[in-house]
Nucleic acid binder design. Structure first.
Lengths: 232, 232
DNA sequence: GTCTATATCTGGATAGAC
DNA sequence: GTCTATCCAGATATAGAC
């Protein structure tokens, strides 16, 4: 699949995402009119991601945020009840997005080789479309309070498990050689994450997400197809 | 090389590192007695890394730090002149450590294959010995002010260049197939970083740094040795 | 050299006018 | 629904005693 086709197929605007978010959290938001709420939530999320990814969530004051979002402090507090809750809101929405899209794009594929390929592409393409969300989730995970941190860790392991499962299936069917599915999946995940964590680097090199996807697929294929014998 | 042997060979205690740091920054530190200064710097660095890696540098108050380091606020300010400077101090020391150790361990090796292997091992082993430093440097890079951020980016590209150079040499000598050295090196770096960024995961899986090093070397070898032909 | 005490400021959160 | 004004906890940084 080409990136442009993917982009069209998911059609994710900030407002779409916020609309879904509002529906899921209608009780927590004081503002009653949906149109108004979605519009301002979009502003708040966008500003949170922009400012946080610049200076870190902890260093972003709510005054910064209210200025950048174009809302007063008072208005801001009609949408969030605390800064911590805002963090949770953004993370939660990012996670459910990944689960949904990744699931949709790979569940129906029977061939492990094709499934792995689709998984890699989907993960990279999605992280390209909503890069600020991915970057934010990764970077702000460590600072999470209480049980929210656990959720984030589960999310990390969730996608890893998906890839490990595909690899395991491929080994079972004799398509891949006998590697450690868990470690292989972990390494793959590291490469997928590198795409959105070091965007400045890849951008500077004029590397497209399609080129990167192809590279990762080739590297993984080389490892999964290699002969068992070892030289050296 | 075995990890234990590496560990002995570098013998890096927090105090050794601080001693070197003090020598390089003698003018910035008000306390005159070297013994006292080194001892307290070690406490400050150790506490900074511990608390920051727990809750993030921005969220660490200097009260937290002074308590954790066992120094009063006043004493603390005899060693640092501001919180920003502390950030710079820790990062700077981490960087110079990496350059030194990585350089020492690979410069004399002529065979690209062996050199790559040694580079991977050294990077992983070092990040294991001084994990808090690596983690801190990675996580707190984005929040840096001014030109300090540039230094951190250069450091990222520096090690990447080392590995790209080795791969390029290997290709030139006909030992590796014709891959993109820069992209390959970037992917390798992502895997090396994963080791210290997701320590919780690897620890939980009882994975040793030697096992991980072997895995990465094998994966890279598979890619670099693979046939050019591709199955569809 | 290190401590306690404190000046000063910043940021999260809220009350109440519009 | 949104704004301004304000409260107050907690932060950085410093002064001056010991």
């Amino acid at each position: 699949m080409k990136f442009e086709a993917f982009k069209d197929s998911v059609r994710l605007s900030m407002e779409d995402i916020c609309e879904e978010f509002l529906a899921r959290n209608r009780d927590r938001i004081k503002v009653k009119k949906d149109r108004v709420a979605v519009k301002n939530l979009a502003k708040i999320f966008e500003a949170t991601l922009r400012v946080s990814n610049e200076k870190g969530f902890a260093s972003m004051s709510l005054r910064d945020l209210s200025r950048e979002a174009g809302l007063s402090m008072g208005a801001l507090y009609s949408y969030i009840s605390s800064k911590d809750e805002l963090l949770d809101m953004v993370q939660q929405q990012g996670r459910s997005l990944v689960f949904k899209i990744l699931g949709e794009h790979i569940e129906e594929i029977p061939d492990p080789r094709e499934k792995l390929k689709a998984g890699i592409q989907t993960h990279l393409y999605l992280s390209e479309v909503v890069q600020p969300w991915f970057y934010f989730s990764y970077m702000e995970t460590k600072n999470l309070p209480r049980g929210v941190h656990r959720k984030a860790i589960e999310a990390e392991l969730f996608t890893e498990k998906i890839f490990a499962g595909i690899i395991e299936e491929g080994i079972g069917k004799g398509l891949f050689r006998k590697v450690d599915p868990q470690m292989t999946s972990a390494a793959l995940k590291a490469m997928l994450q590198d795409w959105y964590l070091k965007r400045w680097k890849h951008e500077r090199r004029r590397l497209s997400v399609e080129q990167y996807a192809e590279f990762v697929i080739e590297l993984m294929s080389a490892y999964l197809d290699a002969k068992e014998e070892k030289g050296g």
